[in-house]
Nucleic acid binder design. Structure first.
Length: 295
DNA sequence: GGCCAGGCTATGG
DNA sequence: CCATAGCATGGC
């Protein structure tokens, strides 16, 4: 039993991974990252040869955290599977150490229902309020901030809509509550989706209120192990149109076809690299250009 | 103050 | 199939 463990892994960038818009509850302070995983408070620090993990309740088992962080994924072979083009090469250089997590499916589903048409900072706020209102408090070190677990579907399904509105969810509140009721009532079993073919799992998710193609793909990729899932949001549309379609307008069907044909078995990873690349390198160089041409 | 955000649903071509 | 309005909220 121990409160601390070093997870051996190479090429793991905590900041890029935990703040890349796939998970929303990590808080950084002085290069240390804190969150709640599987109902347990966790703190992570980068260390030579791996990641140092601290928990508050002593544990003998660390598989849950290795699974969440995907420390046994060989990143170099993932990147080697990408198609060889200049854009992905640049994205790989800019995103070194960026990983995909494997999150809890319900938390991931609920989080991305809330994500629609919202900035990442606002998504974090909604989720934080939801957890404070409905999640169980978890034990933390005396020095750490108070933290709550992500509330289970039963708790969200039972919550009054007014309470969800107080979490500033807007029109997403009713979607979240209705989906929570379906999950809690067993109308959909998230645990069965990893074993299904991608198209079928996607279809099942899209039967839920507030879940369209983008949200479904995020859940498939970030929590259900479907590594060919490729979430297409406004950033990805922008970057694909710029880099692969010569800035011409593209219909959704054509873009979807290109994605399926081009990116290969680790398409989801390629998507995350392009997403992060678009939001950091490309958007900053674009605004620099704008400043140059307008001054 | 206006534009836009890791979109979805409903409706009309 | 495609395009678009409407949605609730607030960061920038």
């Amino acid at each position: 039993m121990s409160r601390c463990r070093v997870l051996r892994v190479a090429d793991y960038h905590l900041g890029r991974t935990l703040e890349s818009g796939q998970a929303f509850r990590w808080v950084e302070s002085e290069e240390r990252w804190e969150s709640v995983v599987q109902g347990r408070w966790v703190r992570l620090t980068a260390e030579a040869g791996g990641l140092r993990a601290e928990v508050e309740a002593p544990t003998r088992e660390w598989r849950w955290l290795e699974e969440y962080l995907q420390t046994d994924v060989d990143l170099s072979s993932v990147l080697a599977s990408f198609p060889h083009d200049a854009h992905l090469t640049a994205a790989m250089a800019a995103c070194r150490g960026l990983r995909l997590l494997r999150q809890d499916p319900w938390e991931c589903l609920a989080s991305f229902i809330l994500s629609s048409n919202k900035q990442i900072t606002q998504i974090r706020q909604m989720i934080d309020r939801l957890c404070r209102e409905l999640g169980q408090r978890v034990t933390t070190p005396a020095s750490a901030k108070v933290r709550h677990a992500f509330p289970p579907p039963e708790a969200v399904a039972a919550a009054p809509l007014a309470l969800l509105a107080e979490c500033r969810m807007g029109y997403r509140g009713p979607y979240l509550k209705a989906t929570a009721a379906k999950v809690a009532g067993g109308e959909i079993n998230l645990g069965r989706l990893p074993g299904m073919v991608l198209a079928e799992a996607r279809e099942q998710l899209m039967s839920l209120p507030g879940v369209g193609p983008k949200v479904a793909d995020c859940v498939l990729l970030f929590s259900l192990g479907h590594r060919r899932a490729f979430p297409v949001d406004v950033w990805i549309q922008r970057v694909l149109r710029e880099l692969y379609f010569g800035r011409r307008s593209v219909t959704p069907a054509r873009m979807r076809q290109f994605i399926e044909d081009y990116f290969g078995a680790e398409a989801g990873y390629a998507q995350q690299y392009l997403f992060h690349y678009a939001r950091t390198v490309l958007s900053s160089s674009r605004s620099a250009q704008l400043r140059d041409t307008t001054s």
